[in-house]
Design a protein around this nucleic acid. Structure first.
Lengths: 155, 155
DNA sequence: CTCGTTCTTGACTGACCGTTCCTTAATTGG
DNA sequence: CCAATTAAGGAACGGTCAGTCAAGAACGAG
């Protein structure tokens, strides 16, 4: 019973994913979230407990819906390099070192990617994305003569 | 003439490099800087103009003293992977996209590294460092059969 | 010694930070 | 219809943010 929610929790998390993927954790304020998420401050705290709670929910959803489906090398590389895994990138760079739970989630996601790409290719794709963020281009990873676990995507 | 400075500007910049390399731009406050730098707030603003001014000075000094000397592939890889170029990493990931001047500096530095390592190796080393920050290990880059411009460091 | 200049020092600003409280509205079970 | 429950909405909390101001101290030049 009780009054029904007037917002879609999934939609809120989706918007949070977009925001947290676009800039650093500290540069996303709760006001930003409230404004872009169409949810009221109090509801946000009732639902997620804290800013970090919402961040963790967003990160977990991101990894679940955007990383787990990547079971083939080529789409995985493309997802990383196109910036569709930027929340994972930010989490690895700036949050994992100071938040154990974030570190655990990030480690799981990277290990998952490694199963398809191997650690070296995953690393290379992440680094390529970092360079792209700074406006610097990088030769395609197809130039790499690595040895991914399942090289079936080679043409 | 005038009263002489009671702080060493180089030392202040050195401390700023350490701080800005350890966490995101927004999570380093001017109070943090004032506390760790042994310089008083007003002197900081008189000398560098703003938080961003100090950041840019730190970034430029970092690139000048920590990146430019890397004229051989092996030490360059080691510097990136050991985290000694984390300020450059943070700058590329979170500042370059929102600050043109930072983007220009980062692009120059990456291009400099590319001259020795090639874009792919630089990317792979950066990605390896990202993974390390999240506590995930990665096979050594020596496994990579890339084609750096000067492969004289191959053993 | 005095004047002009530069740096130091600490208090202070308005804005924004994450978070909480309280009242009111909407719902369901009895 | 009433009581219990849950969420919405808005105002407010102390704390911290980047940045500023004014007064005094330490120097060189004359």
């Amino acid at each position: 019973m009780g009054r029904p929610r007037s917002f879609d929790e999934n939609q809120v998390i989706a918007s949070a994913i977009t925001l947290f993927a676009s800039r650093s954790y500290d540069s996303v304020s709760v006001d930003d979230l409230v404004t872009h998420l169409g949810v009221h401050r109090n509801s946000l705290y009732k639902t997620f407990g804290s800013k970090r709670g919402l961040y963790l929910a967003a990160l977990r959803r991101h990894l679940d819906q955007d990383v787990r489906p990547l079971t083939h090398g080529e789409p995985a590389l493309e997802a990383i390099e196109a910036g569709r895994l930027d929340l994972l990138l930010f989490a690895a760079v700036e949050r994992a070192p100071v938040d154990e739970e974030v570190a655990a989630e990030v480690a799981r996601a990277l290990t998952w990617l490694d199963a398809e790409l191997g650690g070296l290719l995953t690393a290379a794709a992440l680094g390529r994305r970092v360079r792209t963020r700074a406006g610097v281009s990088t030769p395609a990873l197809s130039e790499l003569a690595g040895s991914p676990p399942h090289p079936e995507t080679a043409t």
